[in-house]
Protein backbone atom coordinates (compact mmCIF):
# COMPACT_ATOMS: atom_id res chain seq x y z
CA UNK A 1 0.00 0.00 0.00
CA UNK A 2 1.65 3.18 -1.04
CA UNK A 3 -0.35 6.37 -1.02
CA UNK A 4 1.78 9.50 -1.32
CA UNK A 5 3.49 10.15 1.99
CA UNK A 6 3.05 13.67 3.19
CA UNK A 7 6.32 15.20 4.18
CA UNK A 8 8.06 18.48 3.94
CA UNK A 9 11.75 19.03 3.56
CA UNK A 10 12.79 21.00 6.55
CA UNK A 11 14.79 24.02 5.77
CA UNK A 12 17.60 23.88 8.31
CA UNK A 13 18.65 20.32 7.58
CA UNK A 14 18.03 20.65 3.86
CA UNK A 15 20.47 23.56 3.60
CA UNK A 16 23.09 21.64 5.59
CA UNK A 17 22.67 18.66 3.29
CA UNK A 18 22.95 20.78 0.17
CA UNK A 19 26.11 22.48 1.43
CA UNK A 20 27.76 19.15 2.06
CA UNK A 21 26.78 17.94 -1.38
CA UNK A 22 28.16 21.08 -3.01
CA UNK A 23 31.46 20.89 -1.14
CA UNK A 24 32.04 17.30 -2.15
CA UNK A 25 31.71 17.88 -5.89
CA UNK A 26 35.08 17.35 -7.55
CA UNK A 27 36.74 15.66 -4.61
CA UNK A 28 38.14 12.17 -4.81
CA UNK A 29 35.69 9.51 -3.79
CA UNK A 30 37.49 8.80 -0.53
CA UNK A 31 37.70 12.46 0.46
CA UNK A 32 34.07 13.00 -0.41
CA UNK A 33 33.02 10.10 1.78
CA UNK A 34 35.01 11.48 4.69
CA UNK A 35 33.44 14.91 4.31
CA UNK A 36 29.90 13.61 4.03
CA UNK A 37 29.89 11.16 6.91
CA UNK A 38 30.24 13.11 10.17
CA UNK A 39 27.59 15.83 10.06
CA UNK A 40 27.70 17.43 13.51
CA UNK A 41 28.32 15.28 16.55
CA UNK A 42 25.73 12.75 15.50
CA UNK A 43 27.58 9.60 16.37
CA UNK A 44 27.27 7.37 19.42
CA UNK A 45 29.33 4.78 21.20
CA UNK A 46 27.41 1.57 21.78
CA UNK A 47 28.25 -1.62 23.60
CA UNK A 48 27.00 -4.83 22.04
CA UNK A 49 27.52 -8.42 23.08
CA UNK A 50 28.00 -10.17 19.75
CA UNK A 51 28.14 -13.97 19.78
CA UNK A 52 29.01 -13.84 23.47
CA UNK A 53 31.85 -11.34 23.10
CA UNK A 54 31.59 -7.73 24.31
CA UNK A 55 32.20 -5.23 21.49
CA UNK A 56 32.33 -1.47 21.86
CA UNK A 57 32.03 0.61 18.74
CA UNK A 58 31.43 4.22 17.81
CA UNK A 59 29.04 4.57 14.92
CA UNK A 60 27.24 7.27 13.01
CA UNK A 61 23.68 7.27 14.39
CA UNK A 62 22.42 6.31 10.95
CA UNK A 63 24.31 3.00 10.92
CA UNK A 64 21.96 0.04 10.81
CA UNK A 65 22.64 -2.95 13.01
CA UNK A 66 23.37 -4.84 9.77
CA UNK A 67 26.03 -2.38 8.66
CA UNK A 68 27.51 -2.30 12.15
CA UNK A 69 27.93 -6.08 12.01
CA UNK A 70 29.24 -6.22 8.47
CA UNK A 71 31.26 -3.04 8.08
CA UNK A 72 32.43 -2.33 11.64
CA UNK A 73 32.78 -5.80 13.13
CA UNK A 74 33.60 -7.58 9.86
CA UNK A 75 30.97 -10.23 10.54
CA UNK A 76 29.89 -10.63 6.94
CA UNK A 77 27.92 -13.84 7.43
CA UNK A 78 24.77 -11.74 7.89
CA UNK A 79 23.77 -10.73 4.37
CA UNK A 80 22.34 -7.55 2.92
CA UNK A 81 19.65 -8.42 0.41
CA UNK A 82 17.00 -5.75 -0.04
CA UNK A 83 18.01 -3.52 2.93
CA UNK A 84 14.30 -2.75 3.36
CA UNK A 85 13.06 -5.53 5.62
CA UNK A 86 11.41 -7.52 2.89
CA UNK A 87 13.78 -10.39 2.09
CA UNK A 88 15.00 -11.63 5.48
CA UNK A 89 18.62 -12.20 4.38
CA UNK A 90 19.81 -10.00 7.27
CA UNK A 91 17.92 -11.95 9.96
CA UNK A 92 19.84 -12.30 13.21
CA UNK A 93 18.73 -12.59 16.81
CA UNK A 94 18.70 -9.77 19.35
CA UNK A 95 18.19 -10.81 22.98
CA UNK A 96 16.94 -14.15 21.69
CA UNK A 97 14.33 -12.93 19.18
CA UNK A 98 14.84 -12.74 15.43
CA UNK A 99 14.86 -9.33 13.79
CA UNK A 100 15.68 -7.82 10.43
CA UNK A 101 19.01 -6.22 11.28
CA UNK A 102 18.63 -3.82 8.31
CA UNK A 103 15.51 -2.34 9.96
CA UNK A 104 17.22 -1.53 13.22
CA UNK A 105 19.78 1.10 14.10
CA UNK A 106 22.90 0.05 15.98
CA UNK A 107 22.28 2.86 18.50
CA UNK A 108 18.93 1.28 19.42
CA UNK A 109 20.76 -1.81 20.68
CA UNK A 110 23.17 -0.48 23.29
CA UNK A 111 23.58 -3.26 25.84
CA UNK A 112 21.81 -5.89 23.74
CA UNK A 113 22.97 -9.42 22.96
CA UNK A 114 23.25 -10.11 19.25
CA UNK A 115 23.77 -13.53 17.71
CA UNK A 116 24.80 -13.94 14.08
CA UNK A 117 25.42 -16.99 11.91
CA UNK A 118 29.10 -16.88 12.96
CA UNK A 119 28.01 -17.49 16.55
CA UNK A 120 25.96 -20.62 16.05
CA UNK A 121 28.47 -22.94 14.45
CA UNK A 122 31.70 -23.36 12.50
CA UNK A 123 32.52 -25.59 9.48
CA UNK A 124 33.98 -28.26 11.73
CA UNK A 125 31.32 -27.93 14.43
CA UNK A 126 28.04 -27.10 12.77
CA UNK A 127 24.77 -26.36 14.49
CA UNK A 128 22.16 -29.13 13.90
CA UNK A 129 20.20 -26.74 11.70
CA UNK A 130 23.26 -26.06 9.56
CA UNK A 131 23.88 -29.81 9.22
CA UNK A 132 20.25 -30.35 8.23
CA UNK A 133 20.45 -27.65 5.55
CA UNK A 134 23.54 -29.37 4.10
CA UNK A 135 21.97 -32.82 4.25
CA UNK A 136 18.73 -31.66 2.62
CA UNK A 137 20.23 -29.28 0.03
CA UNK A 138 18.37 -26.40 1.66
CA UNK A 139 20.00 -23.85 -0.63
CA UNK A 140 21.40 -23.26 -4.09
CA UNK A 141 23.30 -19.97 -4.28
CA UNK A 142 23.46 -19.73 -0.49
CA UNK A 143 22.93 -15.98 -0.15
CA UNK A 144 19.73 -16.21 1.86
CA UNK A 145 20.98 -19.19 3.88
CA UNK A 146 22.37 -17.45 6.99
CA UNK A 147 19.05 -15.64 7.39
CA UNK A 148 17.08 -18.82 6.69
CA UNK A 149 19.05 -20.73 9.32
CA UNK A 150 18.69 -17.98 11.93
CA UNK A 151 14.95 -17.84 11.26
CA UNK A 152 14.60 -21.62 11.24
CA UNK A 153 16.20 -21.91 14.67
CA UNK A 154 13.90 -19.18 15.96
CA UNK A 155 10.85 -20.93 14.47
CA UNK A 156 11.48 -24.02 16.58
CA UNK A 157 12.16 -21.89 19.68
CA UNK A 158 8.93 -19.93 19.14
CA UNK A 159 6.88 -23.10 18.70
CA UNK A 160 8.42 -24.55 21.87
CA UNK A 161 7.54 -21.31 23.69
CA UNK A 162 3.91 -21.74 22.61
CA UNK A 163 3.73 -18.60 20.47
CA UNK A 164 0.83 -19.10 18.02
CA UNK A 165 1.03 -18.19 14.34
CA UNK A 166 -1.66 -17.11 11.91
CA UNK A 167 -2.25 -20.71 10.81
CA UNK A 168 -2.50 -22.12 14.34
CA UNK A 169 -6.07 -23.41 14.76
CA UNK A 170 -6.32 -23.28 18.54
CA UNK A 171 -4.51 -20.27 19.94
CA UNK A 172 -4.27 -21.71 23.45
CA UNK A 173 -3.51 -25.42 22.79
CA UNK A 174 -0.06 -26.95 22.27
CA UNK A 175 1.19 -26.20 18.77
CA UNK A 176 1.60 -29.07 16.31
CA UNK A 177 4.55 -28.73 13.93
CA UNK A 178 3.03 -29.01 10.47
CA UNK A 179 4.29 -27.96 7.04
CA UNK A 180 1.81 -25.07 7.05
CA UNK A 181 3.02 -23.96 10.48
CA UNK A 182 6.68 -23.93 9.35
CA UNK A 183 5.95 -22.25 6.01
CA UNK A 184 3.94 -19.48 7.68
CA UNK A 185 6.65 -18.89 10.28
CA UNK A 186 9.36 -18.82 7.60
CA UNK A 187 7.36 -16.40 5.41
CA UNK A 188 9.71 -13.49 6.14
CA UNK A 189 12.66 -15.21 4.47
CA UNK A 190 12.68 -15.20 0.70
CA UNK A 191 14.79 -17.63 -1.37
CA UNK A 192 14.99 -16.56 -4.99
CA UNK A 193 16.53 -19.90 -6.02
CA UNK A 194 13.35 -21.52 -4.73
CA UNK A 195 14.88 -24.03 -2.32
CA UNK A 196 11.78 -23.84 -0.14
CA UNK A 197 10.89 -27.54 -0.30
CA UNK A 198 14.36 -28.54 0.91
CA UNK A 199 14.43 -25.81 3.56
CA UNK A 200 11.14 -27.20 4.84
CA UNK A 201 12.64 -30.71 4.89
CA UNK A 202 15.69 -29.48 6.82
CA UNK A 203 13.61 -27.74 9.47
CA UNK A 204 11.27 -30.71 9.79
CA UNK A 205 14.27 -33.00 10.27
CA UNK A 206 15.65 -30.89 13.12
CA UNK A 207 12.19 -30.60 14.70
CA UNK A 208 11.80 -34.39 14.63
CA UNK A 209 15.33 -34.97 15.98
CA UNK A 210 14.68 -32.60 18.87
CA UNK A 211 11.17 -33.89 19.65
Amino acid sequence: MSPAINFELRRRTFIAGTAVAAVTVGMSRKAAAQTAAPVGAESTTVFLTVNGEGRELTVDNRTTLLDALREHLQLTGTKKGCDHGQCGACTCTVNGTRVNSCLSLAVMHDGDEVETIEGIGAPDAMDPMQTAFVENDGFQCGYCTPGQIQSARAVLDEIRAGIPSHVTDDLTAEITITDAEIRERMSGNICRCGAYANILAAITQVAEDQA
Binding site: G85, G88, T91, T97, R98, V99, N100, L103, S104, S151, A154, V155, E158, P164, S165, H166, T168, L171, T172, R185, S187, G188
Partner: peptide, 23 residues
Protein backbone atom coordinates in the same frame (compact mmCIF):
# COMPACT_ATOMS: atom_id res chain seq x y z
CA UNK B 1 -3.83 -11.57 24.10
CA UNK B 2 -4.60 -15.07 22.77
CA UNK B 3 -6.78 -16.21 25.67
CA UNK B 4 -8.38 -12.86 26.49
CA UNK B 5 -9.09 -11.38 23.06
CA UNK B 6 -8.42 -14.02 20.37
CA UNK B 7 -9.47 -11.83 17.42
CA UNK B 8 -6.93 -9.18 18.40
CA UNK B 9 -4.25 -11.84 18.89
CA UNK B 10 -5.02 -13.28 15.45
CA UNK B 11 -4.76 -9.82 13.88
CA UNK B 12 -1.40 -9.18 15.55
CA UNK B 13 -0.10 -12.58 14.43
CA UNK B 14 -0.66 -11.74 10.76
CA UNK B 15 1.01 -8.33 10.50
CA UNK B 16 4.04 -8.32 8.17
CA UNK B 17 6.33 -11.27 8.91
CA UNK B 18 7.72 -12.73 12.15
CA UNK B 19 10.86 -10.58 12.29
CA UNK B 20 8.77 -7.45 11.76
CA UNK B 21 6.36 -8.55 14.48
CA UNK B 22 9.24 -8.88 16.93
CA UNK B 23 10.08 -5.19 16.49
Amino acid sequence: AASKYPALSALASNIGDPAVRNR
